[in-house]
Simulated scan of single mutants.
Amino acid sequence: MFDRPVGGDAVVLVSLDFGETGYEESLDELRQLAISAGMDIRATVEGRRPKPDAKLFIGSGKADELAEKMREVEAKVAVFNHDLSPSQQRNLERLLEARVADRTGLILDIFAQRAQSHEGKLQVELAQLEHLSTRLVRGWTHLERQKGGIGVRGGPGETQLELDRRMLRLRVKQLREKLDKLKQQRGMQRRSRRRSQVMSVSLVGYTNAGKSTLFNRLTQSGVYAADQLFATLDTTSRKVYIPEGGSVVISDTVGFIKHLPHALVEAFGATLEEAVQADLLLHVVDTASTNRDDQIAQVNKVLGEIGADQVYQVLVLNQIDRIGIEPGLERDEYGRISKVRISAKTGEGLDLVRQVLLEHQQHLNAQTPHTHTSHISAVV
């Protein structure tokens, strides 16, 4: 549908070090993103600059080096570990005579491949349109041919670009209206759950931390889980029964990532509302990651942006099997569980997660239905 890199493309990764901390981790994440998109990584071009070049981002000398490397390895796409301006992307494509994708474009491509539900596909399309609208030159006439398309015709003297822009604005408006309706439907479902006093729990965490594996363990579901970034996108909810605690609705949400494109934070706001409206957040962390503290901070940053930072949170330190530590739990100064150490893969410590659910359910039951949420404070 869009002029974007597709799985199987031969690509060269491009990353510049501007002296910021976490450069190597960011580059490693770009490699994982490209692999998750199904791309064939042929080479990596790196460099150091004090700031981006206004015209070509990487500068003319590095751009010539990139062009030579792409010819050498027969790559079709250059994937940047940065966000490019529309003019920088166009200038690079002219120079390289190849397609150029920035970090946001790559993440959008993965989301487009992975979205399964009707709502997920609508959200991805909205994010794509909003990101690509600034890069609009030609090529949006496909909207006329889409099933259920808007079928707009330009008036006398209207240029193709003007027509494309008008069609784009109408399509964005149409998508927002559809997503608003789905948001209202979800709100009705949540109110129904609250009337029945069913506790709502959302799994949140950095992508690839093991959320879907834990979700499958707790709910006996078959949600797709794989060792790759953004293995699952659509929020999935299941009701489970906790002995002595009653029914609980558990939701598995989309994974977070460093520098998550703002367009995706906005477009997936409806899906992430499950986290905002939850009674409890289980923040799943890859304990074996050398960058786990930064990942925790990135997740909490996005939770703050969507208004979920006031929901009670328990850290689930997952994948203890990879570093050989025992399952266990920690409590805060009020005696409530703040952290648990588990392995969703082997099942070690799963009883501790169920204990978290039971104790939190009991805590909610001890408060009045109209006030229990306001008394929950975040624990990190």
Rank of each mutant, 00 (worst) to 15 (best):
A275E: 12
S247E: 15
G255E: 11
T271D: 11
E266G: 01
E273A: 08
L281D: 05
A225V: 12
A275H: 10
S289E: 04
S237N: 04
I250A: 12
H259W: 00
E244W: 03
L218E: 05
N208L: 00
H283L: 12
A231M: 07
T253C: 09
G255D: 14
T219S: 04
F230S: 04
K239H: 08
L233K: 05
Q277F: 11
T232Y: 02
A226W: 04
H262A: 13
T219I: 08
L218N: 01
D252S: 06
A231I: 06
F215L: 02
A263P: 05
D234C: 00
V276G: 10
G255A: 06
P243W: 05
E244F: 12
N216P: 12
Y241V: 11
T219N: 06
A288L: 03
V240L: 13
P243D: 05
V276T: 08
D234Y: 04
S247D: 15
I257S: 05
A263H: 15
L214F: 07
A278I: 09
A225C: 08
D286E: 01
A267Q: 15
D252W: 11
G255W: 07
V276E: 08
T253L: 03
A278N: 09
L272T: 08
A267V: 13
I242C: 10
K211D: 09
A288N: 03
T219E: 02
T287L: 12
F215S: 10
E273H: 10
K211I: 13
K211T: 13
V265C: 09
H283G: 02
S221E: 06
A267L: 05
V240I: 14
H283V: 06
Q277E: 15
S212M: 10
T236M: 06
A267I: 15
L264C: 09
T236G: 13
L233F: 05
V265I: 15
S289F: 03
F256P: 01
Q277C: 00
H262L: 09
S251A: 12
S221C: 13
S251Q: 09
T213M: 12
F256N: 00
Q277T: 14
F215T: 04
K258A: 15
V249T: 14
S289L: 02
V284Y: 13
A226F: 12
G269S: 11
V249Q: 14
